[in-house]
Nucleic acid binder design. Structure first.
Lengths: 334, 334
DNA sequence: CTGAAAGCGCTTACAG
DNA sequence: CTGAAAGCGCTTACAG
C-alpha cells in the first residue's frame, strides 16, 4: 500500500546481515545460526515487515496459489463452494485467488486471463455457464478442474453431482402421479449445466410415461419467469421442475401472484439445496448438492495434478441428497 | 501454470523487436509505429501470450489492485457485497483479490497479511467480526475502508447502514404492542456489528416502554439458538429481535420445533434482507441492507483515498429498507 | 520511433 | 553458517 514499505533490505541492514541470510532466516530455510534467525525475526517483527509475495513467487517460481473462477459470488451455491475450496487449500498451505466470471463468455475470458496472469499453479472453474471454449483455453495453460460442470474434454478433471440425483428427483415427481410436467430449460450455449439437467429430467419423465412441457429458460428471471409459468399453466401441467433453487423461488412467487396454490394446484421442485434453501422450515422440495464434497474433491483433483501425479482425466460424481419439502404434492385428481 | 510460459522475450524475438518496444506496443504506450504495434500484437495473440501481472506490477509499481477481506463468502450478504465491489472496481480498471477472513482474529490477520503481501493499493474490510486491532493494523499500511462495520478510528473510512434503520425496526415491534421483547446479543469482541445493533434495539425498545430480555449470542448457531429461544419463552417475551437473517431463520426453526406459532404466539424479526430473505413469498420481517450502495460507496471511498484525494476519514451511512413480512404480528392479548 | 540498461523485491545456486 | 551475484518477467527513464 502507500506507506514506504519496509523491504528485505531494510530488515537485513537493521539486523546486520546480508539479504540472502535475512531471506533464509525468515523462511527457516538453509542453515543459519539460531541466534541470527532469532535476531532477524525479531527485527522483521518490530519493523512490521510484510514480504512481497509477488516478488518471492517470481523469484522462487513457486507454484502455490490456485485461482478459481466463480459464476457469481452472490449465489450461495458458488459462495459455499469457494469457501470450502479456500479452506481446503489453506490446509495444504496454498493460496486462493477468486474471480467472478459472470454470465458471458467474454467476461469469463477476462476473469480467466486475470487469474492466468497471476501465474496460478492451477485453475478451478465453478460455473454452470462456463463454455467449453473457456475451459479448454484455460487447460492449454495448465491444470484445470471443473466443479459443478461436467468436463467437456478427456484432459480436464471434473466433479459434479451424480446425474442419478436428477433422475431420482424426476421419479419423485412421477411417484406423485404427475402426468403433465413442465420443465425449465436452457440453451447449452448459455448454461450447459442447466441444459444437461433439464435433459435428464425430461428423459426420465418421459420414460415414466409423463408428457413434458418445455417452458424455456426461466433462469434469466423477470419476464422469462412469467412466460415460463404462463406456458406451464396453459399446458395444463401439474408440476414444474426448475434447474436451480433461485429459479424455483421466482416461479413460486409468480404462482403466488396468480393465486395458484402450491402444491395443491401446482407442484414445484428446485435444485441445489444450499444455505437457506435447505431449511426444513421453508420446506422446499429440492436436491441438495454435496457442496462440501464437491469443494474438497476439486481441491484434491487439482492439487494432485499440480504435483505432477498426472494421469488420465478423472470425471467424478457424488450423490446429492433429496430434500422432500412441501412444494411437491400429489397431482390434482381433476 | 506448468506449461512453458511464453514471455515478453519470446514475443519480442518473434516480432523482431526489443523487449522495450514489445512492452510498449502491447500496452499502447509511448510512441511506437503503427505497423510495429500491429505486428507485435498479432504475434502475442498467436503465441497465446499472457503477461505476468506480478512482474509488471512489480516493475511498474502500479497501484491497481485492491484487496477485500470478507467475513465469509458463503453468506449472501458478504457474497453480494463482494460481487458489487468487484464490478465497481472493474469499471475503474482495477483488480480485486478476495480473502475469506473467518471469525477469529488470527485467521483474519492471516487473511489481511496475505492481501498486504500482494501489495494491494488499498483494503476493504467487510466483516462484522473484524476487530479494531485488525483494522488498525491494516490501516498502518495504507488506505482501508470498512463496510458494514462502523469505523473505530478517526483515520479509517467506513460505510454502514444508517442506525436509524435499527431504531425503525424496533419501533415497528413496539407499534405492534409488544411489551416484553427478547433481543439476541453479541459480545463486542466477537462481533462489534451485532453488538452495536443489539444496543440500538435495546435502547429504542426501552425508550418505548418495553421490557427487554437479553437472550445471548444466538448467531453462533446450534445450542446457542436453543438456549436463546428457551430464555425468550421463559421470560414471557412476545417478540424476538435477531441481529441477522440467518439467526432469525434458526430461531424460527427452533420455534417451529417447539410448536410455537409465529407470529401469533411469538413475533420474530431479522436483519439484512439480502437474496432469498428479501422474498415477499417467504415473508420475513426484516431490514434490507442497501448492499449495492454499500459496495459502490466502499469503492468510491477507497479509490478516492488511493488516488491521494485524502482528507479526514469519512463515516457514511445509508438508510435501509423495511421489509414488513409476516413474522411480526401484534402482541397476543393474553 | 527504438534499444540497452537499470531496477522492482525477492530467492537461490555458488563460493567461501 | 554467510555473502556476492545472477535472475524471476516485466517497465521505464535515458540515449539515440
Amino acid at each position: 500500500m502507500t506507506r514506504e514499505s519496509v523491504g528485505l533490505v531494510d530488515i537485513a541492514r537493521a539486523a546486520g546481515v546480508s539479504r540472502s541470510t535475512a531471506s533464509r532466516a525468515l523462511r527457516g530455510e538453509g542453515r543459519v545460526s539460531p541466534e541470527t534467525v532469532e535476531r532477524v525475526k525479531r527485527v522483521a517483527q518490530s519493523l512490521g515487515y510484510v514480504p512481497d509475495l509477488r516478488a518471492s513467487a517470481l523469484a522462487s517460481k513457486s507454484l502455490n496459489t490456485v485461482g478459481i473462477m466463480l459464476r457469481a459470488s452472490e449465489r450461495s451455491f458458488y459462495g459455499e463452494i469457494a469457501a470450502r475450496i479456500q479452506s481446503g487449500l489453506e490446509r495444504r498451505g496454498m493460496d486462493l485467488i477468486i474471480a467472478n466470471g459472470g454470465g458471458s463468455d467474454t467476461s469469463q475470458m477476462r476473469a480467466v486471463n486475470s487469474l492466468l496472469g497471476r501465474k496460478v499453479a492451477g485453475l478451478i472453474i465453478a460455473s454452470g455457464r462456463a463454455s467449453i471454449a473457456v475451459a479448454q483455453y484455460a487447460a492449454s495453460f495448465g491444470p484445470v478442474a471443473l466443479v459443478g460442470l461436467s468436463s467437456p474434454s478427456p484432459t480436464i478433471d471434473s466433479i459434479v453431482i451424480d446425474p442419478d440425483s436428477e433422475r431420482y428427483l424426476a421419479r419423485r415427481v412421477l411417484a406423485q402421479g404427475h402426468r403433465v410436467v413442465a420443465v425449465t430449460t436452457a440453451l447449452a450455449d448459455v448454461s450447459r449445466t442447466l441444459h444437461d439437467r433439464a435433459e435428464i429430467f425430461i428423459s426420465e419423465l418421459r420414460a415414466g410415461g409423463a408428457d413434458v412441457v418445455d417452458i424455456g429458460p426461466a433462469a434469466e428471471g423477470g419476464e422469462a419467469v412469467d412466460r415460463a409459468v404462463a406456458t406451464a399453466v396453459d399446458a395444463g401441467a401439474t408440476a414444474i421442475m426448475t434447474g436451480d433453487d433461485t429459479t424455483m423461488l421466482a416461479v413460486l412467487e409468480r404462482l403466488a401472484d396468480q393465486g395458484v396454490a402450491v402444491p395443491r394446484q401446482m407442484s414445484v421442485t428446485g435444485f441445489d439445496g444450499v444455505g437457506v434453501f435447505a431449511s426444513p422450515l421453508l420446506g422446499f422440495t429440492t436436491m441438495r448438492q454435496p457442496v462440501e464434497q464437491l469443494g474438497d474433491t476439486a481441491v484434491r483433483l487439482l492439487t494432485s495434478r499440480i504435483s505432477g501425479v498426472a494421469s488420465q482425466a478423472r470425471h467424478l460424481c457424488i450423490p446429492g441428497q433429496y430434500l422432500p419439502g412441501r412444494t411437491l404434492g400429489s397431482a390434482p385428481s381433476h
